[in-house]
């Protein structure tokens, strides 16, 4: 019984923490970007605009929920829920410290990648169900892009799995604590694998320079063009949670998780995750975006061969 209660409390607190953190990550992004653009960002709602995400949420709750007449109603309703669910579900296996982890499962990495891959489904679903040409184009682009970038993502995530000798994320972190962070060693494969993982992650979570499914200047608002109020908020939230969880996964797989030069603990994990999260937004607000065909070319010409080579290298190193 106590096991169940513990699990419930842990997962609920992780869920709440992630949602809260994500909400304020949006505030953080807006302030951060504003400074990049020599603006101030939100200042009027609460101290330094800290209550801005709350105001947005309260507003979005009150908006009319429009379902276009020609839309596929069931899919249209399902897609945003699924999007948020997938993003949050992936957080289950990410260990924030040795004890704080939603579900310790042996095939944690596999679960993470599988859930990550499923997130494209609600996106395409939304694009299809909206019966809007811009949304449809966005959905098609998302599908093509996610399927392609899944390959280097999985292959580069396999490098720490091989080096750590386990599919369990916690075990991978522990083996890093025992030896060294995979980004540094034990063999000169971790850094390129990390870079690949980050690149593929940017593409998976539809961030610039790979944000062509959303591409607001081309496709109005991509798949979310027809969504109003809370449904849009769920998509929005799902996107941020996805980026957040992917940053956390990258810190766990490559950056030693909760390990730190002194006083190891959860704060290190949170710090690393936020650093990667900030990096994603730094990139997002500095670069322009690729065209979809260029995106595919980069993936299949460069990322896939390199990730295969890395995987083989890691295998060879372990065997030898």
């Amino acid at each position: 019984m106590s096991v169940v209660v513990t699990a419930l409390v842990t997962s609920l607190s992780i869920l709440t923490a992630i949602l809260t953190v994500t909400a304020w990550a949006i505030w953080f992004e807006r302030k951060f970007v504003a400074r990049m653009q020599s603006r101030l960002g939100p200042t009027m709602v609460g101290p330094s605009g800290l209550l801005q995400p709350l105001a947005d949420l309260v507003k979005l709750l009150q908006k009319e929920d429009i379902v276009p007449e020609a839309a596929d109603r069931r899919l249209f309703d399902l897609a945003p829920k699924l999007a948020a669910l997938c993003a949050l579900g992936a957080a289950a296996v990410v260990p924030f410290s040795a004890s704080i982890v939603g579900a310790k499962i042996d095939l944690g990495v596999l679960y993470l990648l599988a859930i990550g891959a499923v997130t494209v489904l609600p996106v395409f679903m939304a694009g299809w169900a909206s019966n809007n040409k811009f949304a449809l184009l966005g959905g098609m682009r998302a599908l093509a892009q996610s399927l392609s970038y899944e390959v280097p993502l999985v292959l580069s995530a396999m490098v720490p799995v091989i080096l750590g000798g386990s599919m369990d994320v916690s075990k991978i972190v522990e083996s890093q604590i025992a030896t060294q962070w995979f980004i540094i060693g034990p063999v000169w494969l971790g850094l390129p694998a990390f870079c690949l993982f980050m690149l593929a992650m940017l593409a998976e979570s539809n961030r610039i320079p790979f944000d062509i499914p959303e591409a607001e200047s081309e496709l109005v608002s991509g798949v979310t063009t027809e969504y109003t109020g809370m449904k849009f908020a769920l998509f929005y939230l799902g996107e941020y949670v996805h980026t957040f969880v992917a940053s956390a996964a990258a810190s766990a797989l490559f950056l030693g998780g909760w390990d730190g030069p002194f006083a190891p603990g959860m704060h290190w994990m949170v710090l690393k995750t936020f650093a990667l999260f900030g990096f994603v937004y730094w990139v997002r607000w500095s670069l322009l975006r690729f065209r979809s065909d260029q995106l595919m070319r980069i993936c299949w010409y460069w990322l896939v061969p390199v990730s295969v080579a890395l995987l083989l290298g890691a295998g060879a190193w372990v065997v030898l």
């Binding site: 908006k63 608002s221 027809e226």
Partner: peptide, 22 residues
């Protein structure tokens, strides 16, 4: 919306689709 006046200060952002605008 640009730097000098910055509507984002009061939480106003520009949305390209009418569905998400107030």
């Amino acid at each position: 919306a640009a730097s000098r006046v910055d509507l984002d200060r009061m939480g106003t952002i520009v949305r390209a689709t009418p569905r998400q605008a107030d």
